[in-house]
Amino acid sequence: MTVAAQSFSSRPIAAVARGVALPLVLLLVWQAWASTLPANTRAPSPAQVARAFETLAIGGGLVGATLQSLGRVMLGFLIALVLGVSLGVLMGSSRRVSRNLDPIVEGFRPIAPMAILPIAILWFGAGTPAALSIVAYAAFFPLLLNTIHGVSRVDRKLLQAARTMGLPLHARILRVVLPAALPSIMLGARLAMGVAWTAIIAAELAVGAKSGGGSSGGLGQMMFVFYAYSIDLNNIVVCMIVVGVVALLIDRLFRVAERRLMPWRI
C-alpha cells in the first residue's frame, strides 16, 4: 500500500476521532467530577444517567410518555397543516385577502405559543386539548408563511396556461399551485415540526408545573415530576437526551422526505 493511499484511508477515521474527542473529554471530566462527590449526591453523572435510561426505558414509562408527546405533536401538526396551507394558498394567490389578513397574522406572530397557554388552560383545562392547541398554534405560523411565500411565487404563465385549458379552480390548486409551492411548504413543515416539538415539551412542563402535577402526561410532564417530586436529576438528563434525539430524528425524516418528494431539488 502506498503512502498516499494510506493517508487517504485514514483521513475519515481521523475526522471521526477529532469529532468524538471533545464530547468524550467532557463526558470523562463530568464523570470524574461526579465521582469526587459523596455517594448520596443528587448530581447526575454519565454512568448514573445510563443506568437511569435503562430503568426508565424498560417499564419506566419513558416510551409511553414519549409516544404520548409525539402523538400530540402529530395531531397538532395536522391541524396546523390543514389550516396553514389552506389559508396560505388563499393569501398567496389573492393580494386582496393577504392585504387584509396580513396585519392580523403579523399581530399574532410575536405572541409566543407559551403566552397562549394560560388561555388554553382556561378554555380546555389541563389535558390534551390544551396541549394540542399550543402545538397547532406554534406550528401554524411557519406553515402559513412558507405556503404564502411558495404560492405567491408560482409561475403566472403556468396558471394562465391551466386556465386556458379550462382546468377548474380546485384542479388548478391541486395540480398546479400546490406542486409548484411544495418546496416552500415542505420547508415550512420541517420548521413547524421543530417548533411543535419544542412547544409540546414547554406546554407539558408548564401544565405539570401549574396544575400541581395534574393530568397532562407526556415527556415534559415526566421531566417536571422528576424535578418537583423525586428530584432525580439523572432521570431529567435522560429526558433531555430523548428530547434532543427525537428532535434530530424529526429533522432528518423531513429532510429525507424532501429529497424523496422533490428529487429535482438537491
Binding site: P23, I201, M223, Y227, L233, I236, A247
Partner: peptide
C-alpha cells in the same frame, strides 16, 4: 467543536428548564 454543537443544538432551551 462542531460535533458538540450539533449534539447540544437539538435539545431545546425549554428542555433545560427543569435542570
Amino acid at each position: 467543536v462542531d460535533p458538540l454543537i450539533e449534539l447540544l443544538r437539538p435539545i431545546s432551551g425549554i428542555a433545560w428548564i427543569p435542570l
